[in-house]
Structures are given as C-alpha cells and as structure tokens.
Amino acid sequence: MRLSIIVPATGPQSALDNSLVSVLENLPDQTEVLVPHHEEYEDPYDLGEEVTFVASPQAAPIGLLKAGIAASQSEFIHVLMNGVEVTAGWTEPVIQRFKRDSSLAAVSTTIRDSKQSKIAGIRYRGGGSASAVRASRRNKASIDGPCLEASFFRKSSIETLGELDEQLCIRQTNADMAARLKSCGLACEHESDSVVRGELSSLPSGYLSSRQLERVYRRHRPRMGRTAPLMHLMATTANVTRHGPSWGLLTSTLGHCWGNLQARWSAETHWEPGDRESTILKFPNKNATADDRGAEDLCVEDRRAA
C-alpha cells in the first residue's frame, strides 16, 4: 500500500458516513481505508470489504487515531477527522510533493469551511496554544504543522515525533504536533491543490482547554526559546478573558492552575523525540529562524546525550 487513510469513528454516525462516502467515491489506487472505533461500534452499512475496521479500547479521538496509525501498512498516512469530506484527486498532489522532497515530514491540505475560509495549517505560538493560518493566493503560508482534521504524514516522521497524548483534544493536539515538528526542525508545508471541506474542531470547556494548554506549554517550554513565558502569559490571558465575567472565567482559571501543577509534577508531560536521530538530522528546516535553529540543535543534542 502507498497510502493509509485513517478516519476515526467519533461523533455522530451521519458525519462519519459522509466522510467515508466522499473517500470511497474518490479513492485513489494503492490506498487502504482504516476506521478505528471503540470496541462497541458496529458496521451498519456492511463496509467490511472496502474499509478495515480497527477495534480499540479507547473511545477518545486521539486514542482511536493511535490505533489506526499502529494498524497502518503504508509509507504515508492521511488523517481525516469525522465530518470532513474530500474532493476528487485530493491525495495526488500531496503524494507527489512527498516524492519530490524527501525532507517533508508532513503536509497540510486546504480546509474550506462553511464560511468559505481556507485554512492552510497551524502555527505554534510558543505559549501552549496555536493559531490556524489562512491560505493566501499571494504568499506561501508559513506553518509549523498541519491541521489534524485533514493532514498527511510520512509514517517515519510520526515515529520520530513520538506517542500522541490521549489526554488532549484534537485542537490541542494540533498545537502539540506543531510544537514537536518545530522543535526537531521537521518540515511541514501547505498544499493548496489538495482541498477538503469541513470545520476545525472546537475547544472543550474552559476548565479542560485551560488544563490542556498548560500541559502542552510545559511539555515544550525547554525548546521554545526566551519568549515562551511571555507567549504563555498572553495565551493564558486570552484563554481566561474570552469567557468574560462568568462561571467560565473561574473554571478556566482553575484549569490553568491545576494544569500547571500537574505538568510540573507529572512525568507524562515530558516529551522526547523518538529514537530515530538519523531521521531528525535528515529533515533540516531551510526556513528556520535563529530561535528555531537553536531549538533544533537542542533537540539533536538531547538525542545524542540520551
């Protein structure tokens, strides 16, 4: 197989059906479709001959995604979250891009949402949060990572980035993955000719989103340079004040406090790249800033010291 398309079975059944129908109607050659699902999920449309269903004890989206990645048999992996619909020929420009440039670890599609906005990818801000980057006709979008809702990865790069965190929502996993790619200088680019339709995932409640933001920030703080504390303060302030004078403001503040304590004392929040130093060194980021190169050097030095 050349490509594995992973569609985790989360959310409403109708959204999953729409995603699968669009994929199967436009399925390229040498491609397998994997649907990781909770062990209680059933196949109501008898798609067993066209789709490989992967049972998982985890019901959370990231847990399901990990099960799909583990079951994949291809060089390239395409993650498509529930409800996102593809268009004809959306995989080919991405695969060709991977083949032309062996330094690419990930590629972000163009996600066209209901407001006709075009999302190109994710930029990590250094404070535990990330922002979506809009596609531009004039300038090449500068991104640190793809939107997990519709993203492509070289499977070897996923192994380098390490195990995904099941305690994070999709939105915070976007930030986490972008930070990992940025830390190790692994290249991610936007492919404007690969278009899908869908929405970016929403953040959970104020308490959960605040706790997860702290988790991501503490995980990547050592590699994000001197401006990281300032960016974290700005991200925390924006996250708390977006609720206004309400109960959400209090729960968001508590989430930041508890997440901070958890991240400081829990070994689970510590992240190291996978044991693939040769892969890390293989993907130089040609557009890296001085701070980015410093983070990349630290990443490589950590691997050599391990």
Rank of each mutant, 00 (worst) to 15 (best):
R2Q: 11
I5W: 01
T10I: 15
G11Q: 08
L16Q: 09
N18W: 01
L20K: 00
L20C: 07
V21T: 13
Q30L: 09
E32N: 10
H38E: 04
H38V: 01
Y41I: 08
P44G: 06
E50H: 10
E50L: 14
A59T: 06
A59E: 08
P61H: 03
G63A: 07
G63K: 09
G68L: 07
M81T: 02
E85K: 06
A88N: 12
G89Y: 04
W90A: 12
W90M: 10
T91F: 02
R97A: 11
D101C: 05
S103V: 14
S103A: 12
V107Q: 08
D113K: 00
K115Q: 13
Q116H: 14
Q116D: 15
G121L: 07
R123S: 13
G126K: 10
G127I: 02
A132I: 03
S136R: 07
S136V: 04
A141Q: 13
S156Y: 00
S157Q: 03
L164S: 07
D165S: 08
Q167Y: 07
R180A: 11
S183H: 08
S194Y: 03
S201K: 12
S201D: 14
P204I: 01
S210G: 12
E214F: 00
E214V: 00
R215M: 15
V216P: 11
M224Q: 13
P229T: 14
L230S: 15
M231S: 06
A238P: 01
V240D: 00
H243P: 08
W247F: 15
G248W: 01
L250T: 11
S252G: 08
G255Y: 06
W258R: 13
L261R: 10
A267N: 05
S278A: 14
F283G: 09
P284S: 12
N285L: 14
T289W: 06
T289M: 06
R293S: 10
R293C: 11
G294K: 12
D297A: 13
C299I: 08
C299D: 10
V300R: 13
